[in-house]
Amino acid sequence: MIVTKSLEFSYDNNFIFKFPNINLKSTENLLILGNSGIGKSTLLHNLAGILRPKSGTINIFNNDISKFSEYELDKFRGENIGIIFQKPHFVNSLTVGENLELAQFLGRNKRGDIKLTLESLKILDKINKKPKELSHGEKQRVSIAIAIINSPKLILADEPTSSLDDSNCANVINILKEQALKYAAQLVVITHDSRLKKHFKNSLDL
């Protein structure tokens, strides 16, 4: 269950982002659509507890995260939220497998099975590779693996498909939906990519 009310954010008080209310039941996914510069990433960072709203409340699974301390936010994020970025990020000194081990350690979670997760994303053979040795598609899959290894209850994806062609776009969004279903997680995708509309029942225009 994800509920936001009269959420406002400002970087420097000159310009205030006003976000529409979100009210998402616990089994629903959501597509948030908006053009560049309208504050899509800002909203995602607020939902993830990376940024703090200027006013309003963010209620995720009955936790008002706008009242959390920095430490509580890190802890909550690690345990409950998986984030997928437009450009995949890794700890480059670690192998794929070690990146997943690190995610487990930081998320205070030993539940997920690294090999099974990689297997389900068809990249188990890359477990001992360094991120630099992977192709773009493989990188994206690994970053999905990192996001879901701790079985998060909420998966946030920031422009996961904007640089992909149509077939890969469908591919990635299917993987995301599939994994969310598998782990009983809610999927919130933020994008300007209107191709995704047909994949979601709920959508919100910024």
Partner: peptide, 18 residues
Amino acid sequence: ERKYDLALIRTLGGTRFQ
């Protein structure tokens, strides 16, 4: 060089202290 690595560690639940 590794600012994204560091940011990733935070988004994965790593604290500033870590």
